[in-house]
Design a protein around this nucleic acid. Structure first.
Length: 887
RNA sequence: GCGAGGGUGGCCGAGUCUGGACAAAGGCGGCGGACUUAAGAUCCGCUCCCGUAGGGGUCCGUGGGUUCGAAUCCCUCCCCUCGCACCA
C-alpha cells in the first residue's frame, strides 16, 4: 500500500520549479483591478521563523483561493531591509550592512520558495536599494513643500555609549536601559525632523469607524494611541511678588469642577518653572533633586506665586509638581482635589483645601455635597457650591462655563505626537538636506536624488558623521561650502508606503504609477502581526492620506481588510531564542515537507488565534496528505473497482461533494482556514469509506478527488499539484477553476443532521436493547400528512392548532393518530422547526443507508411510510424516522 | 484605573452576531473492536451520569434576570490576555 509519508522533497522541488518556469504568480501590469493580497514584508534577519511562515501561509492560501475563484491576484513580497540590526551584525562579522542584508535576503527568499509561497517576484522591492529609498527622499521633499515636515528641537532617548538616538521601543524596562548595551538612556534635546501626523489626527481617528474590515482590537489601540480628548482651555492669571506672568493656560476636561479648583500646578519644565529655578532655591532643589516623574507619589513644591481663579477671583497657591507633564495638555493644570484622584492625593499631602462642588445625581430632593475628605468624587453629577451654576448638570455646566469664562474656549487635546523620523544611524535613508551656514537647512533638489549612502565606516556613533568626504558638499541655493544632514530616516518611513511601490516597482518618474494605484489600491487583504497595530498601520494610513491630498491618490485608506494573525507558541509560551523554545520551520520542511507544515498551521486554529505547536498535529497533517496521495494514486492506477451505475451511495457521496464545496467556499471567503480545510479533509475521508464499501461510481469518485484537490490546493499546493497531474488533468491546479456547487448550507446541515441523528439512534437502540447481531434494520420515513400538519402548525397563529389541523381532510382522516400528533404539536408550538420535505428526507436516508449497513454489517431498508407497517410508521415524525430493528 | 478581547467536556478548539434539532462539530489524548504472525499505518465505535428500543438527569467561569425555551440576549461579580495610563 503505502508507508507513512511520501517523498515530499521531490514533489515540492518539482512543482516549485514548474510554477517558476511558467510564471504562474506573475501579475501583468494590464490587469484591471486585481485582488491585492499582502503580508507585511519581513525584516531580512536571515531566518524565516514560525511567525513568518504562518503569516505568509495565510496570504498565500488566500491568494491561491482567490485565483481559483477566477480573480486576478496581486501577491507581492519585499524586504524591510534598513535597520539597526544590520549595522550591529556588520560590526560583529566585520562586513558591511549592505552585504549582510543581501545575504539574508537571498537566504530568506530561498526559504520562502521552499515553502511554496507564490509571489510575483518581478515586483520584489528592497527598501535599502537607492531605487527604493530615492522615493523616501522624494516624499520627504514633498512633505516639506506641503509644510507637513519641519525641523525642531525635541527631547529624545539618547544612549551615551552607542552615541545614538533610540526609538522608544528600544529603551527597555522601568530602568530605561539601552537594548544593546544596557546603558541607562539619557534624555537629550536635539534638532530633529518631524512629519506632522498630528495634522491628520482627527481624520485618523474619525475614519477608524469606517474600517470595518479591521479587528476591533487594532481599531481600539489606534483610538487610544491618538487619544483625542475634548475639553476646555482656560487661563489663570499668575503673579509673584516681583513679576506678573499674565494668563497661564491650563487644559481640563472637567471645567464643571472649576469652582473646586484650590491650587494651580506647573510642570517642572514649564517656562515659568524654569524661570523660578533661577531665583527660587526651593524650586531649584525640587526640580533637580526631588522631582520623580516616574514615581507613583505626586510630589511638588509650593512657590511664592499665586494664581487668580478665573471665575471667583480667589487666590490659589501655585505649585511646581512632578506629576504635571509638559507634553500633556499645556503643562499646567488647575487642581481640583475634590473630583480628581491624583489632585486629591497631592492636596492631601501638601495640605491644600479639598472642596466638593459636584454632587451625585440625587434620587429626589436637593443634591447634597459628597464627602470628599477621604477620596475624590470623580463622576459627573450636579453642581453645588458653584454660585449661579449650582444645580446644573455636569455636561451642561461645561458648556456654559466654557462660554462664560472670558479666557475659556473649547479645546481638543491629542496624545498623538508628531512623528520624529531622525535617526543617528547609518543603515537608513539619508535625509535629503544640506546644512548651509548662510541658508540654513536646504532641500537637495529633486534631480540630485537619490542621496546615496557612502561606504560603511565601522565606528562608534553615527557612521555618516565620520564619512567626511560624503558629508562635504555645497549649498544647492548659494553654492557655499555646506554639510549634508547626517541623520537617516526611521525605517517606518519605508514601510509607510511600500504597498504602493509594488504597483509599479520599476517606475523611474514617480514613487508609484498614479493611475494604476488608483485602480489597484487599496490592499484588499492585509495580514501581519498585532505588534504593528499602532506604529506601522498608523503611519501607513497617514502617508496614504497625504498622498490623497497632494499626489492625486484616490484612496484615503490603504488597507480594506486587516487580519492580525495569532502567535505560534510552544506549550503556551511565545517562541523565542532567549527561551530556547524555537521550532525551526526549515527542520519541519525537511522532515515533513512544506505542505505538511502549511496544512498543520492552517488547521490548528483560526488565523487570528494563538495556538500551540504540536508534533502530533504535524504528524497527523502529514498522515492525512499521505492518505490523500494513496487514494488518488490507487484510483489513477485503476486499482479501484468502478461501475457506471448510480446508486444511493453515489448520491450520498455526491451530496457530500456539493456540501464540501459550498462550506469550504464560505469559510475561505472569511479566511477561516481551519474549518475550510476540515471540510476538505472530511470529504477525503468520505471518499475513502466509499471506496472501501464496494465498487465506486467512476464519475462520482473522480469528481470527489478532483474537488478535494482543488479545495486543499490553497493550503497544500505541491502535493495537490502532483496529484492533479496524477488524475490526468491538463494544466496546473493553481490555474484550475473552483468547482461549481449548488447546495445551500441550510439544507446541507439539515441533511447531515438527519443522517447523523438517525445513525446515532440506531446505535443507541442496539446498545441499550443489547442487540447482538441485527438481522435487518428498517428505517421508515414519516408519512406525508405529518409533514403537512407540522407546516400548518408552524404557520398557524390560532390559540389551539388542533382545530385548524382538522380542517384539512388529508390530516383529519388519520383520526386518533392525527389528534395525538396535533396534541404533540400544540404542546411544542413555540419550538416547532421546519424540516426537510418527505422526499428529500427519504432520499437523504436512502443515500446514507450504506453507512449503517457497513457499521452493523446488516441489511438496511429505508422505506416510505406507505411501504411499511402502520405500527412502525406511526412512530415516525418529521426529521425523526421510525426505526425497527429485527433481531 | 480606563479600554478591548476572552473564560465551553481530560486537553486544544467550534458554536455566541441571527436563542430552539446542543450532551454541544472537529482534532489530540485515552479505551474497546476490525485488519495483521506482530508492531505501525488504516478502518469502526466509545470516551459526564443512569437506562435491556431511540429515554431520563446534570452541564458551557459565578449569581441573578428576560423567554414557552439560554452556551447563545440583559445585569452582577470573579478570573485570564492584550493595549493605554500620574493624560489634566
Amino acid at each position: 500500500m503505502y508507508d507513512d509519508g511520501y517523498d515530499h522533497a521531490a514533489v515540492e522541488r518539482r512543482w516549485q520549479e514548474a510554477w517558476d518556469d511558467a510564471s504562474v504568480y506573475r501579475t501583468p501590469d494590464e490587469v484591471e483591478d486585481p485582488t491585492y493580497v499582502l503580508g507585511m514584508y519581513p525584516y531580512p534577519s536571515g531566518q524565516l521563523h514560525m511567525g513568518h511562515v504562518r503569516n505568509y501561509t495565510i496570504t498565500d492560501a488566500y491568494a491561491r483561493y482567490r485565483r481559483l475563484r477566477g480573480d486576478d491576484v496581486l501577491h507581492p513580497m519585499g524586504w524591510d531591509a534598513f535597520g539597526l540590526p544590520a549595522e550591529n551584525a556588520a560590526k560583529e562579522r566585520d562586513t558591511n550592512p549592505r552585504d549582510w542584508t543581501f545575504d539574508c535576503i537571498e537566504t530568506m527568499k530561498d526559504q520562502m520558495a521552499s515553502m511554496g509561497f507564490g509571489y510575483d517576484w518581478d515586483r520584489e522591492i528592497a527598501t535599502c536599494t537607492p531605487r527604493y529609498y530615492k522615493w523616501n527622499q522624494w516624499l520627504f521633499r514633498r512633505f516639506l513643500e506641503e509644510d507637513l515636515a519641519e525641523r525642531r528641537a525635541a527631547d529624545v532617548n539618547w544612549c551615551p555609549d552607542c552615541e545614538t538616538v533610540l526609538a522608544d521601543e528600544q529603551v527597555e524596562g522601568e530602568a530605561e536601559l539601552c537594548w544593546r548595551c544596557d546603558t541607562p538612556v539619557e534624555t537629550r534635546e536635539l534638532e530633529q525632523w518631524f512629519l506632522k501626523i498630528t495634522e491628520y489626527a482627527d481624520e485618523l481617528i474619525d475614519y477608524i469607524d469606517g474600517l470595518e474590515g479591521w479587528p476591533d482590537s487594532v481599531r481600539q489601540m489606534q483610538r487610544n494611541w491618538i487619544g483625542r480628548q475634548e475639553g476646555t482651555r482656560l487661563a489663570f492669571d499668575v503673579s509673584g511678588p516681583d513679576e506678573e506672568y499674565g494668563g497661564v493656560e491650563a487644559f481640563t476636561t472637567r471645567v464643571d469642577t472649576v469652582f473646586g479648583a484650590t491650587f494651580f500646578a506647573l510642570a517642572p519644565d514649564h517656562p515659568i518653572s524654569e524661570e523660578l529655578i533661577e531665583t527660587d532655591e526651593a524650586v531649584h532643589e525640587f526640580v533637580h533633586h526631588e522631582a520623580d516623574p516616574d514615581g507613583d507619589e505626586p510630589n511638588g513644591v509650593e512657590t511664592d506665586l499665586t494664581a487668580t481663579h478665573p471665575v471667583t477671583g480667589g487666590e490659589l497657591p501655585v505649585f511646581v509638581a512632578d506629576f504635571v507633564l509638559s507634553d500633556v495638555g499645556t503643562g499646567a493644570l488647575m487642581g481640583v482635589p475634590g473630583h480628581d484622584d491624583r489632585d486629591h492625593a497631592f492636596a492631601s499631602k501638601m495640605g491644600v483645601d479639598i472642596e466638593p462642588v459636584i454632587a451625585p445625581e440625587p434620587e429626589d430632593g436637593e443634591p447634597g455635597a459628597p464627602d470628599v475628605s477621604e477620596a475624590a468624587f470623580v463622576e459627573d453629577g450636579v453642581l453645588v457650591n458653584s454660585g449661579e451654576y449650582s444645580g446644573l448638570e455636569s455636561a451642561e455646566a461645561r458648556e456654559r462655563l466654557t462660554e462664560d469664562i472670558e479666557s475659556a474656549e473649547h479645546g481638543t487635546q491629542y496624545r498623538l505626537r508628531d512623528w520624529g523620523i531622525s535617526r543617528q544611524r547609518y543603515w537608513g535613508t539619508p535625509i535629503p538636506i544640506v546644512h548651509c551656514p548662510d541658508c540654513g537647512p536646504v532641500l537637495v533638489p529633486e534631480d540630485e536624488l537619490p542621496v546615496e549612502l557612502p561606504e560603511f565606516i565601522n565606528t562608534t556613533g553615527n557612521p555618516l558623521d565620520a564619512a567626511e568626504e560624503w558629508k562635504r558638499t555645497t549649498c544647492p541655493e548659494c553654492g557655499a561650502d555646506a554639510e549634508r544632514e547626517t541623520d537617516t530616516m526611521d525605517t517606518f518611513v519605508d514601510s509607510s508606503w511600500y504597498f504602493l511601490r509594488y504597483v509599479s516597482p520599476d517606475l523611474e518618474e514617480a514613487p508609484f504609477d498614479r493611475e494604476r494605484a488608483n485602480d489597484w489600491m487599496p490592499v484588499d487583504q492585509y495580514v501581519g502581526g498585532i505588534e504593528h497595530a499602532v506604529m506601522h498601520l498608523l503611519y501607513s494610513r497617514f502617508v496614504t492620506k497625504t498622498l490623497a491630498d497632494h499626489e492625486g491618490l484616490q484612496h484615503r485608506e490603504p488597507f480594506t481588510n486587516l487580519l492580525a494573525q495569532g502567535m505560534v507558541q510552544l506549550e503556551g509560551e511565545k517562541m523565542s531564542k532567549s527561551k530556547g523554545n524555537v521550532v525551526s520551520p526549515q527542520a519541519i520542511v525537511e522532515e515533513y515537507g512544506a505542505d505538511t507544515a502549511r496544512l498543520f498551521m492552517m488547521q490548528a486554529a483560526q488565523p487570528e488565534r494563538d495556538f500551540d505547536w504540536s508534533e502530533q498535529g504535524v504528524a497527523s497533517a502529514n498522515a492525512f496528505l499521505a492518505r490523500l496521495k494513496d487514494v488518488v494514486e490507487v484510483y489513477a492506477d485503476g486499482e479501484i473497482e468502478t461501475t457506471d451505475e448510480r446508486d444511493p451511495t453515489a448520491d450520498y457521496v455526491e451530496g457530500e461533494i456539493e456540501a464540501a464545496v459550498a462550506v469550504a467556499a464560505e469559510e475561505y471567503d472569511e479566511l477561516v482556514f481551519n474549518t475550510a480545510v476540515r471540510e476538505a479533509q472530511s470529504l477525503v475521508g468520505t471518499l475513502r469509506r466509499y471506496r472501501e464499501a464496494g465498487d465506486v461510481r467512476a464519475d462520482t469518485f473522480e469528481r470527489g478527488l478532483s474537488v478535494s484537490l482543488r479545495l486543499l490546493s490553497p493550503v497544500a499546493p505541491h502535493i495537490c499539484e502532483e496529484l492533479w497531474e496524477t488524475l490526468g488533468h491538463e494544466g496546473f491546479v493553481v490555474d484550475a477553476t473552483w468547482p461549481e456547487a449548488d447546495a445551500d448550507r441550510d439544507t446541507i446541515e439539515k441533511r447531515r443532521r438527519l443522517v447523523e441523528n438517525t445513525r446515532e439512534d440506531v446505535r443507541q437502540i442496539i446498545d441499550v436493547a443489547d442487540i447482538e447481531d441485527p438481522e435487518r434494520i428498517d428505517i421508515v420515513v414519516t408519512p406525508e400528512w405529518k409533514h403537512e400538519a407540522l407546516g400548518v402548525a408552524i404557520d398557524s397563529d390560532a390559540p389551539n392548532v388542533i382545530g385548524e389541523l382538522m380542517e384539512h381532510d388529508s390530516i383529519k382522516r388519520h383520526g386518533e393518530a392525527a389528534a395525538d400528533y396535533g396534541q404533540q404539536l400544540q404542546e411544542n408550538r413555540e419550538a416547532l422547526q421546519r424540516t426537510l420535505d418527505p422526499e428529500t428526507e427519504l432520499e437523504a436516508l436512502r443515500a446514507a443507508a450504506w453507512l449503517i449497513e457497513r457499521e452493523f454489517d446488516t441489511t438496511v431498508r429505508v422505506l416510505a411510510a406507505a411501504e411499511a407497517g402502520d405500527d412502525v410508521a406511526a412512530k415516525a415524525e418529521p426529521s425523526r424516522p421510525a426505526i425497527d430493528i429485527v433481531e
